[in-house]
């Protein structure tokens, strides 16, 4: 239809970032059934107010997260040390001389011991900090999140097939109350997707993968109100970059 320059298709094509809609291989009968369903549902009118996904907007005051800032600072510091050491050693070749290998080996031993101690300490500090859910306490609000090319659907019941998706009451954008602890049970109906949640300041709070055949359990404590954008962070096809959703925390 693009080749035929159909005006509606051209408009949709441009509106959706010039991404060609994947061929869903729908035959004539299925297409007619689908159109009839949409018409029937549209004629009913909205049953209740459903939150709409706001347009994509940049956070008013973008901030790096605390973990991100720390990681960047550590990286910058160690990189500067590496560059300084290499620069120093490179410059030393201006004045060639015999090097005492015994002191070099002594230094290597010190580096090995101090490096091992530093790594083990970092492991001890960071390993307990994981996002994995090990038990059901404290109690969380459970939201099933179903990803497919190229959208997310939130529901109270699990969805494991397209057939089931038709019959659940699914939402494209989620509303939760401030201070809520939500457990997302994330799956996919087609390929791998990412489910990444950005806080109102634009920093990633947490993420997990949406994988066909599995439910990943991700818990997030929404401590501040606002709009939390959700983006797909696992490449999932040609419209990957427009796959977005959101969580409104009131």
């Amino acid at each position: 239809m693009l080749a035929e320059q159909d005006p509606v298709v051209i408009q949709l094509f441009n509106e959706f970032d010039r991404v060609v809609m994947p061929n869903k291989k729908v035959d004539q009968a299925e297409a007619e059934s689908l159109i009839a369903y949409i018409k029937r549902e549209s004629d009913k009118g909205p049953a209740r107010a459903v939150p709409r996904l706001p347009a994509s907007v940049a956070p008013a005051d973008r901030e790096l997260g605390r973990v991100q800032s720390m990681a960047l600072a550590v990286f910058a510091l160690v990189s500067i040390i590496i560059i300084t050491v290499f620069g120093f050693v490179g410059k030393s070749t201006d004045k060639p001389r015999v090097v005492d290998m015994k002191s070099a080996y002594r230094l290597r031993r010190i580096l090995f011991i101090s490096g091992s101690a530093a790594l083990l300490s970092l492991l001890a500090i960071t390993l307990p900090v994981t996002p994995y859910v090990v038990n059901a306490e404290p109690k969380a609000e459970i939201i099933y999140t179903t990803a497919r090319q190229f959208s997310f659907t939130y529901s109270r019941e699990p969805v494991t097939s397209l057939e089931e998706l038709r019959f659940v009451e699914g939402l494209r954008v989620l509303e939760v109350s401030a201070d809520a602890l939500v457990e997302f049970r994330v799956t996919s109906l087609d390929t791998n997707h990412g489910f990444a949640v950005y806080d109102p300041n634009g920093a990633i709070v947490a993420q997990t993968q949406a994988m066909p055949g599995y439910f990943n359990r991700l818990r997030i404590h929404f401590d501040k109100p606002g709009f939390y954008a959700v983006l797909c962070l696992e490449y999932c096809g040609v419209a990957h970059h427009v796959m977005r959703s959101g969580i409104i925390v009131r």
Binding site: A55, S56, A58, R62, Q68, Y198, I204, Y235, H241, R244
Partner: peptide, 22 residues
């Protein structure tokens, strides 16, 4: 890449929605 990555810009995005427009 480092600065963008630390501030949440995803890899493998052809274009950036406004949330990660930086």
């Amino acid at each position: 890449f480092y600065l963008a990555g630390a501030s949440g810009v995803p890899r493998r995005f052809a274009t950036y929605p406004a949330e990660v427009g930086h």
